[in-house]
Amino acid sequence: MAERLPTGIDVLDRELDGGFPAGSVVAYQDPPASQGELLLYELSIPRPTYYLTADRTESAVADAFESSAVPANAPELTFLPEGAPLDTGRRAFRNVPEGSTLIIDPADALERTERSRYQTFLSELQNHMRNTNSVAILHCLKSDHSPELRDTTEHMADVVIDLRQTVTASDVETRISIPKLRGGRALSETIKLNLGDRVRIDTSRDIA
């Protein structure tokens, strides 16, 4: 079995046979109005984290980490400017050292660039993650107006995590699925989450 990198969430690691395969590029999709951003904070716990932010400023991301209840190490932050997100992102990920986590939040700005350049970016990102036994998380916001290159992200990613919420008059139910996992088996069932101040697995159903 390929080396695994823990996610920091015990039940998820158990379902993934220890975590993400080392060298993976992960596409993590969630609705903008959800608390799904908490999962990014949890994923930063196990390893040094390098955070590329395309929307919020570095100080805003730093404040969010500091105010979060997640006991994560403060990440190294880089802002991706609107005019050259691919070039800035490429320079940043080439400096990611062995055994690290890279988060790009959100990936939407990259997905609005030219297709061939974005494909080259993803290929180079995958190569660097494999060469350094690291993992990259592309945070992809789900909406009715998702970027045209979202299909490219899903196709080239090694792992796809999909977070869905169902809102009723009395409850908000949050579940994640992992329909794609190169180097392992995709999950056949969803995992129910409780998103409060931390990401917790709802063990009342489905997961023992």
Rank of each mutant, 00 (worst) to 15 (best):
S204H: 08
R56L: 10
T53K: 01
E111Q: 10
L5R: 13
E58T: 11
H128Q: 12
D13A: 01
A136K: 08
L122G: 05
A109H: 14
C140E: 14
V160P: 07
S44G: 02
R130P: 10
L38K: 01
V25A: 08
N133H: 14
Y28T: 00
T203Q: 08
G8F: 04
S204F: 07
A84N: 07
G83F: 08
L52A: 12
R164D: 10
N131P: 09
I9A: 01
D171G: 04
E15S: 09
D105F: 00
D162W: 12
A60E: 08
S68E: 03
G23T: 15
R205Q: 14
E148I: 15
R94G: 06
N73Y: 06
T88R: 06
H145G: 10
E114Y: 11
I191N: 02
D206E: 11
P81M: 03
T153I: 13
R198W: 02
I191V: 10
S34R: 00
R112V: 13
G36N: 01
A60W: 00
D105T: 03
E148K: 15
S116G: 05
E111K: 12
A62I: 01
S67G: 06
A186K: 09
R175F: 08
E42R: 01
L39Y: 01
R94D: 07
L38V: 03
V199I: 03
A157D: 13
R117D: 15
F20V: 05
T174Y: 02
H128F: 05
T152Q: 11
H145N: 15
L52V: 04
D197P: 06
E189L: 04
T113N: 06
A74E: 11
G8E: 02
T7V: 01
D30E: 09
G99Y: 05
P46S: 03
R94V: 05
H155A: 15
S67E: 14
P97R: 04
A72Q: 02
L187M: 10
R205N: 15
R200P: 00
F65E: 01
R150I: 14
L138M: 15
L195N: 01
L77V: 06
Y51T: 00
E173Y: 08
E154N: 15
R205M: 10
D202C: 04
A136L: 06
I191P: 02
N73Q: 10
S170I: 07
R14L: 07
E148F: 13
T132F: 09
A33D: 11
H155T: 14
R198Q: 04
S34L: 00
E82Y: 13
R150Q: 13
Q165N: 10
